[in-house]
């Protein structure tokens, strides 16, 4: 069994390395797939493992974009002047400035989002259930609206970043591997985290927070740390996206509440909430569905996506992993009393 697992992981890793070269036409889509995996995995940290269903994790994605962009620009030019010129093309970046800005910007985005998660979490984690979901959604919408009114960071026009200095195809592969690296790290981090006492504690919060309180578990602290960890990876992903997209604006690409913001939730539900592989599987399925509808359902793709959300939520909420777990509990090491099994069957 352990050997099989090693082979599986090795195969996935090998595919990760080969994919962009084997399917060069799909470079950007593959990078986006990793982005979906990252946001789904991090959403599941709070949503699936801790029971706090946020609708506002996209806030960290958008904030990550802005922080990364502002750091990389601010290191070289005055930000106000830069955004005022809005892609006038007069601002040049050397290779060192570009890659240095990218590295510091992306890292800074992750760290900044972590800190912000703690601050916002301190206020919102007193909210439970639907109030938490709506409250976080409110944070994300408010951030988008405020940023689009903030001229210093480009207002509704957004920000245009410098273009990748090499040729176009290397650029695609470069960003693919950035996303893949963050994606693999996120997965490994989550895998490790869920095996620790910390992981058990956030599961306890999900299953019965009042009991966890009564057992003296530092519930608020765990909630804040978990969200900060999730926010870190989303912030990184946002930072990379900013450079990949080159130009982004607040409402449609940064704080895209009804696009990526809800997609990540659907990915997790589709794959199976509260499992390690669920978000990954869900992200792949969802991404496939999305690309297919985008190509073949001209105009109606959004309706199809909305329908997918409704159908997933209403009819298939346990997701792929939930279905497998229910069907073959032994595979997951769950011991069931023979009696209850008969009742289930």
């Amino acid at each position: 069994m352990a050997k099989n697992k090693t082979i599986l992981y090795a195969a996935i890793l090998a595919f990760t390395f080969i994919a962009p070269f084997a399917f060069p036409a799909f470079g950007t889509q593959l990078a986006t797939l990793w982005l979906m995996i990252i946001v789904a995995l991090t959403w599941d940290m709070t949503g699936g493992q801790m029971g706090y269903n946020s609708l506002g994790n996209i806030f960290f994605y958008g904030t990550g974009m802005y922080v990364a962009a502002l750091i990389s620009i601010g290191m070289v030019y005055d930000i106000g002047d830069y955004t005022n010129a809005a892609g006038g093309g007069i601002y040049k970046f050397t290779d060192l400035q570009y890659f240095g800005g990218l590295a510091l910007g992306v890292l800074g985005a992750g760290l900044f989002c972590s800190v912000v998660a703690v601050v916002i979490g301190y206020l919102t984690f007193g909210l439970r259930g639907p109030y938490f979901a709506i409250g976080t959604l409110g944070v994300a919408i408010a951030a988008g609206e405020l940023v689009s009114n903030w001229d210093w960071v480009g207002g509704g026009q957004g920000i245009a970043l410098p273009v990748y200095p090499g040729d176009l195809d290397t650029g695609k592969i470069f960003f693919y591997f950035l996303f893949a690296a963050v994606g693999v790290s996120t997965f490994l981090f989550a895998k490790w985290l869920y095996g620790t006492r910390f992981g058990a504690a956030i599961n306890a919060i999900r299953d019965d927070e009042e009991k966890a309180d009564a057992m003296g578990i530092h519930t608020l602290r765990y909630k804040l740390y978990t969200w900060a960890m999730a926010a870190f990876f989303v912030g990184l992903a946002g930072g990379i996206s900013a450079f990949q997209l080159i130009h982004f604006e607040p409402l449609e690409s940064a704080y895209q509440t009804i696009n990526l913001g809800i997609f990540m939730v659907v990915c997790v539900l589709l794959g199976g909430k509260g499992t390690l592989w669920g978000p990954v599987i869900g992200a792949i399925l969802f991404h496939l569905f999305k690309e297919v509808t985008w190509n073949y359902l001209l105009g109606w793709q959004w309706v199809a996506l909305g329908a997918l959300i409704v159908v997933t939520v209403v009819y298939f909420q346990d997701g792929v992993m939930g279905y497998l777990m229910h069907r073959y509990p032994e595979l997951f090491g769950i011991k069931v009393d023979e009696k209850t099994r008969e009742e289930v069957a």
Binding site: N53, L55, V266, W302, G306, L308, I309, V310, V313
Partner: peptide, 8 residues
């Protein structure tokens, strides 16, 4: 979530 999907 279902009604959010519906809204979209």
């Amino acid at each position: 979530l279902a009604t959010f999907g519906l809204a979209i």
